[in-house]
């Protein structure tokens, strides 16, 4: 959002069938109104008229529409999927905006002004000039136990959130601890209960008072919600079962980072495995800065990860 996009202009060097960032200006204005409403009421799910995008649902059409609505020609876009910049999904979305908006793209978190993500928040703290756009499959945290939309809407309106703790109670009753590790519910600005999308709960603390604007788009479900910068985001828990993030027994095998989210990578078909940064950019930057993990000498190309 560094500058307003050229009004109704097409991108000169590419096919003239597309408006800047694919969506027409009227649609983008509609989406921006939903975003502004979301920012005004942190954590509240704003309905919006989700459009068909030239990609299937599940590929982040909600996130893509939000990105299209906030992107300006001077923005630098980063797209991550499970923390990686090089998955099919991330490459496709990055290519889509390069083609339809002509914007610069990057894999470096610090360089990006808009970051679209599925499943992760970058390890490097975000800054005030950055926007993090989440792709959301199911925006309603109460749906798990209450399928009636009219009822969940009333529950949000009246702040009746006992049901969220019923879910956590069930976790403890079954597993002895809160076993929810993804899409872990949070309370935003002391008011709305929100589903942070399927990010690991490891990332929940990063949402709390983040300097960056956080926007959430659910395409199929036609909902947008937002966390403005510096907003309180608190993970739900019980007094005797407080919220805890995942911890890892060893540091990243490639860059020796600790306190970051690690993925398990199989090395061979004999059960060999290692744990490496899920945030590929963070890992690469650390290695470029000279950090070496236990297996850093091995020739493990990123493409072997899946």
């Amino acid at each position: 959002m560094n500058a307003l996009p050229p009004t109704a202009a097409t991108v000169a060097h590419d096919t003239p069938a597309y408006n800047f960032a694919y969506l027409d200006e009227q649609t983008k204005r509609m989406i921006r109104r939903a975003i502004l409403k979301g920012i005004a009421i942190p954590g509240y799910q704003v309905p919006f008229a989700s459009r068909e995008m030239p990609m299937p649902y599940g590929w982040g059409t909600g996130g893509v529409q939000v990105t299209a609505a906030v992107l300006g020609p001077d923005d630098v876009l980063k797209v991550i999927d499970q923390g990686a910049d090089d998955t099919t999904n991330a490459v496709a979305i990055r290519g889509f905006f390069r083609k339809t908006a002509g914007v610069r793209t990057t894999t470096h978190t610090a360089e990006a002004t808009v970051i679209q993500t599925r499943h992760r928040i970058p390890e490097a703290p975000l800054a005030e000039h950055q926007i993090l756009v989440y792709q959301v499959p199911i925006p309603e945290p109460l749906r798990f136990l209450e399928p009636r939309e009219t009822e969940t809407r009333t529950m949000h309106a009246l702040e009746e959130y006992g049901l969220m703790h019923v879910k956590l109670y069930e976790d403890i009753a079954r597993h002895g601890h809160i076993a929810t590790t993804y899409a872990y519910p949070v309370k935003v600005d002391g008011r709305y209960i929100m589903d942070p999308s399927p990010t690991p709960k490891f990332d929940n603390p990063k949402m709390h008072r983040s300097k960056a604007l956080q926007l959430f788009g659910a395409g199929r479900e036609k909902r947008i919600y937002a966390i403005p910068p510096h907003t309180d985001v608190v993970s739900l828990d019980f007094e005797d079962h407080p919220f805890k993030v995942q911890t890892f027994a060893q540091p990243c095998a490639l860059c020796a980072a600790e306190g970051v989210y690690l993925d398990e990578v199989l090395l061979d078909d004999k059960g060999g495995r290692m744990f490496v940064c899920s945030d590929t950019d963070n890992c690469e930057e650390r290695r470029a800065a000279g950090h070496r993990g236990a297996l850093a000498g091995d020739d493990i190309s990123r493409k072997d990860r899946s």
Binding site: L163, V166, Y169, F238, E239, D240
Partner: peptide, 16 residues
């Protein structure tokens, strides 16, 4: 247990 506990959680009981 959760069926019985729901009302307690609804009125703010936060001790499992």
């Amino acid at each position: 247990g959760a069926n019985v506990g729901e009302r307690l959680m609804a009125i703010g009981d936060r001790h499992y």
